[in-house]
Design a protein around this nucleic acid. Structure first.
Lengths: 199, 199
DNA sequence: GTCTATAGGGAGATAGAC
DNA sequence: GTCTATCTCCCTATAGAC
């Protein structure tokens, strides 16, 4: 067979090209020091090149942040659209909750980044995927929640955001963690489903 | 009667002295932009003085961060010590949970700061009050938790950290919020109390 | 794709006058 | 307690050679 593309060199194979190595290093460092606390110099040092080499891949720091967050953002967006197609409130809640748990567990470190930086969260909102807090909340607790549902929804959201930062959960695999999170979250949200009347 | 102390001037009365005005501005700005995202220039501008005036009160930025966090840290420390004096696991859990909810609700913005910056969290650990994650966890879920209790404990911890960042909860008063949080957290943690055996 | 070199600005921090 | 002025360092970002 012919060679459609040149073989990547050893350093590139490690993470699939210079661009990907930048993103991998950025993901690490954002998690350790926050986005504001991470400089391009740190990213360059981590992969053993100079700042200028990093700038050849991404022209601004914001581009790097967005590129790190993009896959999770897009996945979240697809999950919301899909959940909104559910025909009953319970079905919509269950679909959103399942996707959210999977997403949070599968991207523990990205959740930690969004948790960890107001600037990053704002940047993410410029992406057509994360001005979606209201849509997620509506899917989880309905359009007009009472206090208790509101608090339960915030607890679930907060818990999912924080799982990446909990050292005692690192020893659990994705499947085990997801199953337990899902069960407890369902419990928290579902307890009063259909009975949430006021007065 | 004599005058034991000079009257504070008008600008000082607003927040009780220059030092307190710095701390108040810092609390605001840390919440808005994170700790790393807040410069001394921003703090100085907010209260209408120069950086040098701020440096007269605190010799480093870290000092400001610690001073902002200190009251909550000390309160947390006292709560842990008190909870550890409980005579049964259930009593210790209940004491810790109650204090934790009160603390988180009463200091929503400080929780947001700790949530929002790895550097701030690390700084806080240098204070003799917040290498205490393990002690809190032991009080909430016992010394040898199963998966489910571990996840439940992390959910409660995460939820409490995030409540300051949830816009939909801002409209609730402290009492209403505390009551609902406490009830739901108790539920999450207590469901399996005494039955958490393995094998 | 990576380098050296550098521009331009804002960061934390200090000195000394008022 | 606050100011002006200044220091040093590191940041993001750019230019141009290899």
């Amino acid at each position: 067979m012919p060679t459609p593309r040149a073989e990547p060199r050893a350093e590139q194979r490690a993470a699939g090209g210079a661009r990907d190595r930048v993103l991998a290093a950025a993901l690490d460092l954002f998690g350790e020091h926050g986005v504001s606390g991470t400089s391009l110099q740190m990213i360059a040092d981590r992969i053993g090149v100079t700042k200028a080499a990093v700038y050849h891949q991404f022209h601004t720091k914001d581009e790097i942040v967005l590129a790190v967050l993009a896959p999770a953002m897009e996945s979240l967006h697809r999950s919301i659209e899909e959940a909104e197609r559910g025909t009953t409130p319970a079905a919509r809640r269950e679909a959103m909750l399942t996707s959210l748990v999977d997403l949070a567990v599968g991207n523990r470190r990205i959740a930690a980044i969004l948790r960890a930086d107001p600037a990053a969260a704002e940047l993410a909102r410029s992406h057509p995927a994360l001005d979606v807090g209201d849509r997620i909340r509506a899917l989880l607790v309905g359009p007009d929640p009472d206090v208790r549902s509101d608090v339960a929804g915030a607890m679930v959201g907060g818990a999912l955001m924080m799982i990446g930062a909990a050292p005692e959960l690192e020893r659990y695999g994705d499947d085990e963690l997801s199953a337990n999170l899902l069960e407890l979250a369902r419990d928290l949200l579902g307890r009063h489903a259909g009975t949430a009347r006021r007065g």
